[in-house]
Amino acid sequence: MESMSFAPILIMFLCFLGSSQAALKMNFYAKTCPKAEKIVLDYVKEHIPNAPTLAAPILRMHFHDCFVRGCDASVLLNSTSNNTAEKAAVPNQTLRGFDFIDKVKSLLEAQCPGVVSCADTIALVARDAVVTIGGPSWSVPTGRRDGLISNSTEAANNIPAPTSNFTTLVTKFANQGLNVKDLVLLSGAHTIGIAHCNQSFAARLYNFTGNGSGQDPSLDSEYAVKLKAKCQTPLDNTTIFEMDPGSFRTFDLDYYKLVLKRRGLFVSDAALITNSTSRSQIIGLAQGTVSNFYTEFAKSMVKMGKIGVKTGSSGEIRKNCAVLNS
């Protein structure tokens, strides 16, 4: 009886999911704000070349947004006296680029008040920023609306941590409708950007056992020496390290090559070669062409950008991305 009663609910859920995704479309603002996407692109092309390292955190912001209540710009909301928002959660405390998104949104509001959502703004800026630094492009269908809820606990629970093992990663991705291939491809974004020592990888160097000592045996020993030279104590909260040393500003295949050499910076990077399926995929990517990586990465980004989107009359179109409309 329980399985019979569950089936209609599942079908209804799948229909709702499909219909919400179908509501997104290319050039959604063609009539309501025809210059919207050009406004975003022009601003990104003007400013990202002067701050190319901002592309990675904005891409990460998009990822973190979509993994909590879907791609609804809930990551942009400020905390209030009655609510601790996603921004305050540990995974989001090192996010950068909020002011960049706010500036783009202000330009959109000046052109078309109350039309373009913050959720679409993040999605468009993330894509355009990556393209501007020479990375892959992908389609960004628009029509997302902004969520009304932002909760730090949900962010802490849903966003994969750099200390996650393979099972945890697969579970958290599956919860969002993403598979192992998506996990491998989206992890490829680690080819750009930087990480903070104590929040990301210090435990691999000094406290892998959890008892105040021990180094992660899966970490290449020579690489560990280099990491320790910069991250000299487990409590170092200021030192940063390149995710992909030597080409951290270039969207290339080096990340996968480093992971295979046991030089992935995070536990979550190292976890990708503990499973035969994901390891095989990484070997294929590392031995393949950049253009193939770009093509496959684009597919996963399009898929991620449709997670739990709010459309139609759901949510709202925020005037200010950091606060709900009054």
Rank of each mutant, 00 (worst) to 15 (best):
R262Q: 04
L285V: 05
S280G: 14
Y294C: 02
D252P: 09
F293T: 01
V290E: 12
S291K: 14
F297P: 06
R249L: 15
L272I: 14
F297H: 12
D252N: 15
F293W: 10
V290C: 06
I317W: 10
G312D: 07
K319T: 15
Y255Q: 08
L260Y: 04
L258H: 12
T289G: 00
S280A: 15
I317D: 03
R263T: 05
G312V: 06
L260V: 00
S276D: 10
S278F: 03
M304C: 05
L265S: 02
G305L: 12
S276T: 10
G305C: 14
D269V: 03
C321A: 09
L272F: 12
L258V: 07
R262K: 12
I282A: 04
R318L: 03
I282D: 06
G264W: 01
R249M: 14
K299G: 06
F251H: 10
G284M: 00
G288R: 03
I307H: 04
S280T: 12
G284L: 01
R249E: 15
F248D: 15
Y255K: 04
R279S: 13
G315R: 06
I282Q: 03
R318D: 02
Y255L: 11
L258A: 15
S280V: 12
G288W: 02
M304D: 10
V323M: 11
R279H: 14
A322K: 13
T250S: 09
A322N: 14
R249D: 15
M301Y: 03
S247R: 11
T277Q: 15
I282M: 05
K257C: 03
K310R: 12
K310L: 15
I307Q: 05
A270K: 14
V259P: 01
T295P: 08
I273A: 00
T295E: 14
D254Y: 10
R262S: 09
F251R: 07
K261H: 08
I273K: 01
D252Q: 08
Q287V: 02
G312Q: 03
S278Y: 02
K306D: 10
Q287E: 13
T274I: 05
L258N: 14
S300D: 01
L272E: 10
K299T: 07
K299V: 13
I317N: 11
F266A: 01
I307G: 06
K257I: 11
F297L: 11
T277P: 08
G308P: 00
A298R: 01
V302F: 13
I307S: 04
N275L: 09
S268L: 06
D254V: 13
V259N: 04
L265K: 00
F248N: 15
N320M: 05
C321N: 00
M301K: 04
S247N: 15
F266M: 08
